[in-house]
Design a protein around this nucleic acid. Sequence first.
DNA 1: CGCGTCACTTTTAATTCGCAAGTAACTTCC
DNA 2: GGAAGTTACTTGCGAATTAAAAGTGACGCG
Lengths: 116, 116
Amino acid sequence: MHDDSSPLCTRFLAAADLLGRRWTGVILRILMDGPCRFGELTERIGTISERVLSERLKDLEAEGIVERHVDPGPPIRSEYRLTQKGQAFWKVIDELGKWAERWVDVKPAPRKRKSA
Amino acid sequence: MHDDSSPLCTRFLAAADLLGRRWTGVILRILMDGPCRFGELTERIGTISERVLSERLKDLEAEGIVERHVDPGPPIRSEYRLTQKGQAFWKVIDELGKWAERWVDVKPAPRKRKSA
DNA sequence: CGCGTCACTTTTAATTCGCAAGTAACTTCC
DNA sequence: GGAAGTTACTTGCGAATTAAAAGTGACGCG
């Protein structure tokens, strides 16, 4: 039998697992444009629940992809920004964007999972 | 009000939503190596449940990314292969792979979501 | 003080996922 | 010629993830 499989390296699995969680790609994409605050992230994404945004941000921080900066100035403000590891992700996001631009046609209900 | 955000084009959202479902990236990555049958996909992924694999394959087919070819030869065999739209995705997978290679360090429990 | 903002948490309900078993169409074995 | 195996899925059901919405705590304003 032909050599049947490349065992799918663990690193790739981890990366795919990361991106395989809902909203991760979108969050990263927004952060690519520059640092962003929690509320701003919520607004720009529009349909994410704060509970999940909070969770994703923690995951990303734990992975060393995002950094949280708390500005204790009078009105407390926190800002999320990409680390070097996170910045390095831009190529992936960029290619995904290009693919989407070229191949995705605007569907009636893209955000609802069960739509079709 | 200042124009506060690039509204995150719908196409990107759709693409991110696609990749944001568990296993999608891994399935695509395997299919990049060539057509694959259901059982073979199950084996190569290792920890995916057939229920979800079946679901993802249907999603991907509905999106026109994967094509299903049924070979009604004596032992029925179905084969999944990428369409042109799916092939075009290789750059995304490739960049993801490169990022993973460079930035992901082998963690103790990469597949279990709740591990950390 | 009461109200509003910001950044999250907590609660509760709806989805999705994993695991095991079942279905269906053949093939092989005895 | 019928019990058992292969391949490709589907189904049931408990467990984990996500959504939606209300709550918490720290300010700042009037």
